[in-house]
Design a protein around this nucleic acid. Sequence first.
DNA 1: TGTTGATTGACAGTATACTGACGGTCTAGG
DNA 2: CCTAGACCGTCAGTATACTGTCAATCAACA
Lengths: 170, 170
Amino acid sequence: MPSKPAAPITIDAVYAAPGYLFRRMQQIAVAIFMEECKAFDLTPVQYAALIAIHTHPGIDATRLSAVIAFDRSTLGSVIERLQAKDYIERKPAPEDKRIKLLHLTKSGAAILREIIPAVERAQARMLEPLKPADRKALMGLLVQLVDLNNEASRVPLRAEDALEHLGKAK
Amino acid sequence: MPSKPAAPITIDAVYAAPGYLFRRMQQIAVAIFMEECKAFDLTPVQYAALIAIHTHPGIDATRLSAVIAFDRSTLGSVIERLQAKDYIERKPAPEDKRIKLLHLTKSGAAILREIIPAVERAQARMLEPLKPADRKALMGLLVQLVDLNNEASRVPLRAEDALEHLGKAK
DNA sequence: TGTTGATTGACAGTATACTGACGGTCTAGG
DNA sequence: CCTAGACCGTCAGTATACTGTCAATCAACA
């Protein structure tokens, strides 16, 4: 069987490509998030970091990067900015001089409570154009795909890593 | 009817949020693209720009940004890098001194032909973990969603803008 | 115990992205 | 014809991301 003839090289092929659609959808998602949350001066990434620190108080930067699938290099500056806004604090760990433990400040916990409704509005708006059944279908497929492709990215998600820092305390 | 009680604030809510999944999927898509195309020293964005210029020779930067839904500010440096690699050239338009027209060079056309198979492998790999029927379903939903949310991003896609630069020549 | 190897946070360098602004240029209305 | 507004490319500033490297530190094994 002869293989299919090479498709003509045009921009239309790009419009239908998964990679293009993922990039485009991410642009849109960030734009909607920023619009709904513009009163709070928090980016999506900073929000995720705050939530993760709230869920795992005393986590260190490397484990945090695994828990939200961030690049460790990038996370450094994210943490700096959150610290500059007085939403988190870093304390050196007594038993390991390399590590700095992350905790929310009172301001951080407060901003988190306040921003939640805006974030939920944003998340809802991203899917709003679809019919409810389609929203579920899309989310289901995406969860699968992200999970099955986890190892393909530089920073695979390792949600269970967050528990390690508690391991010794137990 | 009382509204649902506020969900506890944890990182698990983030894992299921559309915005998080889109960001994660984009990370994965870029990683796969770069891996398949590492022999070519082209990023996904640069590839899309090359394809668009190939499809619309003599397009200017502003219209190019509309055609691939890029930010105009960002596009400047992308064009510079493509020019530095000798894949495109910029020529001032005779009838409008503001505009610089973009064309592929021979190297640019050549690299485009060569990279296509790698790009197609990358696009296929992104969806590979899903069953074929699910791939179709996901792409269908994504195309819809991106289209319906087009105006939500700073740079909506305006594919038809590309035709304008031909309008006067006709 | 002493050194190798791994880990942690930090940094430099490159590439997208978005906001906002600016001078040069064109165009349409008065 | 001439000026107000639109448009073009560009730039400065901020924020993600990834690659690769480094010194300090820790852990584990010989």
